[in-house]
């Protein structure tokens, strides 16, 4: 007991160990997994986040006119495991440290984040397309002499055709596909 008395006195002198929340902000580290957030500009619509999500908290759905797709995250079935962030190839999904997720029961279906992610049209054929985010395209094409701003506006088929044409011109043959 005397051994512990020393600690007891020390702890008494230190005062309360708890944060006086809500009168003062509580300890919240930057990495706290508080809420899943999507940056639609970086989303490619690949759906890996939906595949790995253990709680089926992510929904992707193309709209009828194929002008884009809706992307929804329902926080109330999200386990905050961060798998979506881990597997997202473009860093479009992040988790912020906002843990203030309490809401009335009546709002449970509204505690969600909805986005509409528009397709661009392929500069070649007009097919719907999600362009590579500029940052990633810049990294991918860093050592390429190509103008990547044009390349990212093409769908895979048109990119293939463009490459064939370009290579053909480089080697002096005429591309004559038909």
């Amino acid at each position: 007991m005397p051994r512990f008395l020393k600690i007891l006195v020390r702890n008494l002198l230190k005062g309360p160990a708890t944060d006086p929340f809500p009168f003062q902000e509580a300890f919240t580290p930057d990495r706290l997994r508080g809420r899943v957030v999507l940056n639609p500009d970086l989303c490619l619509g690949c759906g890996i986040c939906r595949h790995v999500c253990p709680g089926e908290a992510i929904r992707l759905e193309p709209d009828e006119g194929r002008t884009g797709y809706s992307f929804s995250i329902w926080h109330n079935t999200c386990a905050l495991c961060g798998s979506c962030r881990h597997f997202c190839p473009t860093g479009a999904i992040t988790l912020n440290a906002d843990w203030h997720g309490a809401h009335p029961q009546t709002d449970k279906y509204r505690h969600a984040e909805h986005h509409f992610v528009p397709y661009l049209r392929c500069a070649g054929c007009g097919a719907p397309l999600r362009p590579l985010p500029p940052g990633i395209a810049a990294r991918l094409y860093a050592h390429s002499p190509l103008d990547m701003t044009q390349v990212v506006k093409l769908c895979p088929d048109c990119r293939l055709t463009a490459t064939a044409k370009r290579e053909g011109e480089r080697y002096g043959t005429t591309a004559n596909p038909g």
Binding site: P29, R31, L32, R33, A79, C81, G82, L95, A97
Partner: peptide, 18 residues
Amino acid sequence: QDIKETIFGNRMDLAANC
């Protein structure tokens, strides 16, 4: 607990492994 919360973002479920 504070170490866990600071490194991993949660006090119990670390989500450290893949």
